[in-house]
């Protein structure tokens, strides 16, 4: 564990708490893509089911895995049951096949062992890199977002960004390189570049998140 990974994980944790807080205080899931949230459940379940068969890593690791599976399922419950009327599928139109298809194909080709569990792990890495796209697509369609939604996305983006110095640190301190995680992680962080630009230049100065026409 190093400081980049710790703060990355804490940022990830914070992003989920921000999202739950937003939904519960506004009693609405307006502006949140159900598809992105459903993809995160798929990501966490396919990656963290290794709790059932892989060797134990740490209490921290186990706790976080359980938290991410549990909280992402809870968010789906909030969106589809508790505050269902506030969820508008008509603007959440990104096609999931475009994300699931490439993730399956990539996982079958690029994995560390051609076994069910390792292909599943690789699938979860590729899917996580793409899972934010329905949410970003929705932002682009609506052209604006509530500040709290942008804070959620910023915390989520910060988590991915912090994993990059973590990998550099691990490369120099342990000689560890994980090409699958690194390439997918860089792609995932890259998807946030436009968002971050507007977040830093507008939202943090108290302006509305609005995309240029």
């Amino acid at each position: 564990m190093n400081i980049f990974r710790l703060f990355g994980d804490l940022s990830h944790l914070a992003s989920i708490l921000i999202l739950i807080h937003k939904i519960q205080t506004s009693r609405s899931c307006r502006g949140i893509s159900f598809k992105t949230q459903a993809l995160y459940v798929a990501v966490f379940v396919t990656r963290y089911l290794d709790l059932l068969y892989a060797e134990h890593v740490s209490i921290y690791n186990t706790f976080m895995k359980l938290f991410f599976i549990g909280s992402s399922c809870y968010i789906l419950y909030l969106m589809k049951v508790r505050f269902r009327p506030t969820q508008d599928p008509s603007i959440d139109t990104f096609r999931l096949e475009y994300l699931l298809g490439p993730s399956v194909v990539l996982a079958l080709i690029f994995n560390y062992t051609f076994s069910f569990t390792e292909v599943l792990w690789a699938f979860s890495i590729y899917l996580e890199a793409l899972a934010i796209l329905p949410q970003l697509f929705m932002l682009q369609r609506t052209g604006e977002a509530e500040a709290i939604t942008t804070h959620y996305l910023a915390a989520l983006g910060a988590y991915r960004a912090l994993y990059i110095p973590n990998w550099l640190y691990r490369y120099f301190s342990e000689g560890t390189v994980d090409p699958i995680a690194v390439v997918a992680g860089i792609v995932q962080t890259g998807l946030y570049v436009d968002f971050f630009y507007i977040y830093f230049t507008k939202v943090l100065r108290g302006q509305k998140f609005e995309l240029p026409a």
């Binding site: 990974r5 994980d9 990830h12 290794d50 892989a54 890593v57 740490s58 690791n61 976080m64 895995k65 991410f68 560390y112 062992t113 076994s115 569990t117 390792e118 792990w121 994993y163 973590n166 990998w167 691990r170 560890t176 390189v177 994980d178 699958i180 995680a181």
Partner: peptide, 10 residues
């Protein structure tokens, strides 16, 4: 089973 070098990450 060869696992990812970073499978201890989240």
């Amino acid at each position: 089973n060869k696992r990812s070098p970073t499978h201890d990450e989240l």
